[in-house]
Write a protein that binds this DNA or RNA. Sequence first.
DNA 1: ATATACTGCGTTATCGATAACGCAGTAAAT
DNA 2: ATTTACTGCGTTATCGATAACGCAGTATAT
Lengths: 355, 355
Amino acid sequence: MTTMKDIAESVGVSIGTVGRIIHNRGRYSEKTAEKVRKVMKDLNYIPNIHARSLKQTKKHIFVVVVPYRDQDGGYWRLVEEGILKATEELVSFGNDVKVFPFDRYSSASCIDALSRALSSDAEGLLIAPCRPNDMRGLLEQSDIPYIFMDTDIPDLKRRTAYIGQDSRQSGVLAGKLMSLLITGKTSAEKEPYVLIVDPPGSNYHLYNRIEGFRYFMSAVMPEIKLMTIKAEIDDEYHFHSRLEEFCVKNPRLPSGIFAANSSVYYTASFLEKKGDEYTSVPLVGYDIIPGRERAVEKGTIDFILTQQPEVQGYQGIIMLYDHIVLKKAIRKQVIMPLNIITRENIHTFTGYMNG
Amino acid sequence: MTTMKDIAESVGVSIGTVGRIIHNRGRYSEKTAEKVRKVMKDLNYIPNIHARSLKQTKKHIFVVVVPYRDQDGGYWRLVEEGILKATEELVSFGNDVKVFPFDRYSSASCIDALSRALSSDAEGLLIAPCRPNDMRGLLEQSDIPYIFMDTDIPDLKRRTAYIGQDSRQSGVLAGKLMSLLITGKTSAEKEPYVLIVDPPGSNYHLYNRIEGFRYFMSAVMPEIKLMTIKAEIDDEYHFHSRLEEFCVKNPRLPSGIFAANSSVYYTASFLEKKGDEYTSVPLVGYDIIPGRERAVEKGTIDFILTQQPEVQGYQGIIMLYDHIVLKKAIRKQVIMPLNIITRENIHTFTGYMNG
DNA sequence: ATATACTGCGTTATCGATAACGCAGTAAAT
DNA sequence: ATTTACTGCGTTATCGATAACGCAGTATAT
């Protein structure tokens, strides 16, 4: 464990000089600097983050820009939980994390939240860019560091990092699971089909998931027809009516249903309302929502894919802190593991983080 | 952000008194202590871990007792990776982590490693108690804190924590996946059977996994017969001969194969050697071993369950540090998520941690 | 020739927690 | 009556990094 003092003594200068060289604060000769840098390497100097953080009397402020916690079936509440957990760890050192939520179906709300965030005193932003077109312009004008989570805008090269999932691959994975669920159950039927429930809003996440799903299904089970319902409103009642409409028009049950986000719980409650024949239809969807695990435990939902939104939120804040305060090098991309959740392992995931 | 100084001023005593009260170091009146404790709550005092760690000039030494890294098909190498990662984070503050590996098939080796660990200058142990009977006695005589990982010895109440998976449930999950893989493929066969590959050694992990698997299979697919091979040596060649023997005796292919640990890769290489007809047999097993992912990518192995050994190793060290150095309250049990790995998501897991 | 600016360094206070040390005052022991 | 022990507290140095401040010495400007 080498300290600045060790280096100073070894070179024969003061720790003040070493400090200035480390932080490029001028007032030193290049000759001294070279000697110091060499000794730093030789002695394998690693800054003591505790001492560094302790000295930081400055209050660091981070701002999070994400959709309202109730949107997408409560998905964002989970993200917030992870953010809260990270916040708790940081506030004890005098930092602050503020959340500026927005309505992901409103351009005005999104622009408003992001503008306020950018003009706040934040030193770094954690953004879920669900509305890329509303956000791109504002972000290009700013020079405050930001990390994207959940969704990416790859062409904004200035972003410090992206943390999220490979959404197309998650669709492929959903296809694989669906194919397993329906294998051997469709042979007797004529013209079997799988129903895709396409949630409201359009973003590259949803698009990619569905595209990946279609890709896998058409490659592996070309005999299965794929039908789609497009929902318009992010609300349980609306989903139920759309599904009911579909059932009326198509009295024959689908071989399986794929819901491209956490609205899978709306589909599950619909199936449960309709009775046993419906609940036994294979159902694959996304995200564990607290309080709605029953649908998985009962088996109405067969598989849930998750990107562990709590972990994403938590990691996002920690990465911001590491980057800005601790000046650590952080990864440009953090691709989250694609977790497969089913009745037999759901209890090992719920509450894994907060407890 | 409340500091000890704030509390001292608020109560009207010195920070020395506050410090003594916080750490029960005596030399204070209960009357003062009550006042201080009240103010601590009111002002929501949280110790600054940076200041605390900085002051810790003492070198903390932790010792890890785990099987040799090459055993169980390289599984323990992964555990070591996580331990190494945690170690790197800690050594920069002057701590040290030593690994005392042992041969998990040798009683003498196990006892030797644990004795040396206990009589070392370690302040805390991270132990994988693969050989409970060899370890129990030694641990009962010692009073050094220890955390179990991977395997538990639940009756040793003095253990600080256990971090690992719910092994029986993982067997149940394996059963579920197996049932999905073989549904619709066995109807034509007469007397379909599934082969269980029982790896060498006996511990409650293996036992529970197989028990969970049997439970699920007999409940859901009672028509499937379950057959077992018991391997005696932890070595690829040995597995291949045992499997070959079995194939000779049972010319009819199994409907599926379940390997109860990372020896699944030995089974996979056997199937690949035998040709396409064999590789298409559904195969379910445990653990991602670096360098052997190909068997999953090619589809020879259909599903891998993992307990993320790197995370277990990492978490184990961090928990030891939190408990002993930072004196945080830690959880008595950390049950790891049961991850399901398949061809479509394996790349999101490999290298997730170290990068 | 004197003021001004800048260079290259050393010295020092600070962040918050910790624990050793010291010092009255009281109580029991010799 | 004096030693000994203990209580209840305050004071202070320390951990390592940071940055403000100070101070010679040199260079340029007026």
